[in-house]
Design a protein around this nucleic acid. Structure first.
Lengths: 220, 220, 220, 220
DNA sequence: CATGAATGAGCATTCATTCAT
DNA sequence: GATGAATGAATGCTCATTCAT
């Protein structure tokens, strides 16, 4: 379905293992030196493997960049939905998802910065795949917003636009981490950010529900 | 004060002219192909000048990137303050500044994207200069926020943090323009964005003032 | 006597079999893509065997080329003498040998072309072996010519030189097959070629004999 | 008209000069080591120029091979017609042309060998150009043959086929020079070769004409 | 000042060969 | 004996930079 990176090696477990070695090394290097300043030798040496080997697992340097970025977006898609395991009402689920998105990015801001910097270094096909994964991630937020609207807790809004504001809230931490960390924490950043949105979105009914939950939490 | 790009050529007017030729050509090329994929020959040819000439106005390719990015930030610093010419109260001035910031970015989103993608391609010193220019731009917003707070129209908030939320509002348009344009306009994006912030920031006194102004505008 | 290609494997039958598998695959690939553009993987894959295995039957890639070329020349040495089985007089035997040489080449012109293209890709020792095999092949013609001269059917000539003219007659078909096939057939090419030589070589006595034979054939 | 090798450099005289330097160096190296075993570094070093420079005059290594082969065939096309300057009758002109062809090849047999070995290393387009130049060369012979036939000096024959026999006479010297030189000279090779053909081709009228000419020459 | 030919270090990629399993 | 993953030297080509004119 997606333009999969091809490998000479058959054993899928080995492919998985080697690629993750190369991706790990490349992620660090790309983040530090950028894609173009990082050589294949840098990557293979850093992975403790020989220069030529990488070409048994990848067709070209570009494939490595794709695998790195794919890996980042995959981790979003894997981590964010776990915020819903705790259950709760629509608003809680919305907040948990936003928080999860911010936290997964806060966990490795370099990865998100890398995505912003180097996605355009990919060929058109790979860019499409990456963008589709981003849209898939956005859907996790869209679903929460619509849940809140359907429940009557959020005012009806332009869902797509709101989603992007939240995406920018999350990505913003990564993009400006160097400075934001000087005068705030990720927690405060998220809390205040959520306040901003809830303030503008909650209906009276939503407020009632939200207060209930917060007080319940506060008692704990 | 700032690590100025050195030139072999004496005549300042000529330096200015040639550099702007190179910067113009390079801006387009960097935005389209990225810094590393653009060659010096690409730039000089596109500028209609000879390959070697650029080295009379710049010491290295990196200098060109710096000049391009500096040019972007300079335009922000030049354009945004013009929003204050219309006068008005603190909240109006705040709104006008935010709007101006968004609009100057909406005008050439490629330039802002470029800054996000390629600032790290600069050496540490140049990065510092660029970051300082960004801080200088931020100050334009900080001043407006503090004006509003001092006037009692905004609740006291973490000014720096709020500033970055606004910066992200403005930059967000450039970063996500490819998708946002599909379901909103820059105007709607700004209006709704401002609403979000004002909603959370205005004191009762601020609201009174704000309503007055909006109605005054609405009458027109 | 000849620098034989060494093998790790003991069983001669197995060596024979594997080598013929590799030679078969390599012949086709070398003819199509050339020796240097053909990789060891191409050969082993095409032979349906694993990459490393070939190095149990051959010391280096060059050995494969040698085996391929040796195989070609061996087939000449095996096929051409069969032309003498039909018996006949000296001139008939000469003609039959020339014809056989042309036909064995006409049968697989790619092999001969390959020999012309890639013999120099071999090391000096291997080249010597191949050249000696060519000389051995030439001897088949030399013997026929001398037979005819001794019988008084051919004028005395520079035998070696004549031999090479005939070798070029035969090889010429392979070297220029791409074009010759457009306006003649191998049979016509041979017949007319033989005519040319007989015309110049036959003594009156030889002519008498030759006519007799041709008419004998014509009657059939 | 022919897929011309492109150059970055404008000055035609310089292009001409540099290319001939590279071609000269490459001709020797290709002949000695073969195209694939010769590196770009070999060529540029041998030409006394820097590695990168060659790419201002040629797009790829393949272009160098083309230029080398083109150069060989161009020299044929330039040299052979000069044989006609001496004038003479059709048969003389035929003989002079054949002799000239053999001699131009005898002058640099390596070049012709190279053409046989490496033409297939070229891409399809370049191969076509080279083949067309060969056909153009053949035409020089075709014209002589037809002249002789039209004059009634040669029996009517398959002109194309005869042409290829002569081409093989000429090329044969290069292909087998290593051995032919051991028992004959180029002159003898040509003289006897011409005899062979004339013997088979001349009409009684042609013979008369031919004897006259030879005796005329003999007297000198 | 301007030109553009020349330089050569740097890099992605290939592929013959090895060797642990 | 057979496999195929691993090695790393080799090489075509690019491009920032220099400098003679």
């Amino acid at each position: 379905m997606q333009p999969c990176v091809v490998s000479n090696v058959d054993d899928p477990a080995l492919v998985e293992m080697r690629r993750s070695q190369f991706v790990k090394a490349a992620s660090e290097l790309f983040a530090r030196k950028g894609y173009h300043r990082t050589t294949i030798r840098d990557i293979t040496q850093s992975a403790g493997l020989s220069t030529g080997l990488i070409y048994s697992y990848v067709r070209a340097k570009e494939d490595v960049l794709f695998l790195v970025l794919e890996n980042v977006l995959k981790s979003y898609l894997a981590e964010i939905p776990r915020a819903l395991e705790a259950g709760g009402g629509p608003v809680e689920r919305f907040c948990a998802t936003v928080r999860a998105y911010c936290e997964v990015i806060g966990d490795k801001p370099d990865a998100t910065q890398l995505a912003y910097r180097e996605t355009k270094s990919l060929g058109a096909d790979y860019q499409t795949v990456i963008k589709n994964m981003e849209l898939e991630t956005n859907q996790l937020i869209i679903d929460r917003i619509e849940e809140c609207i359907d429940a009557g807790y959020f005012r009806p809004v332009n869902v797509e636009l709101l989603t992007y504001r939240i995406v920018l809230l999350a990505h913003g931490w990564a993009l400006k981490a160097w400075r934001l960390q000087q005068f705030t924490t990720l927690d405060e950043y998220i809390d205040e950010g959520l306040d901003l949105f809830l303030n503008a979105l909650l209906t009276p009914e939503g407020w009632a529900h939200y207060r209930e939950v917060r007080e319940g939490r506060g008692v704990q």
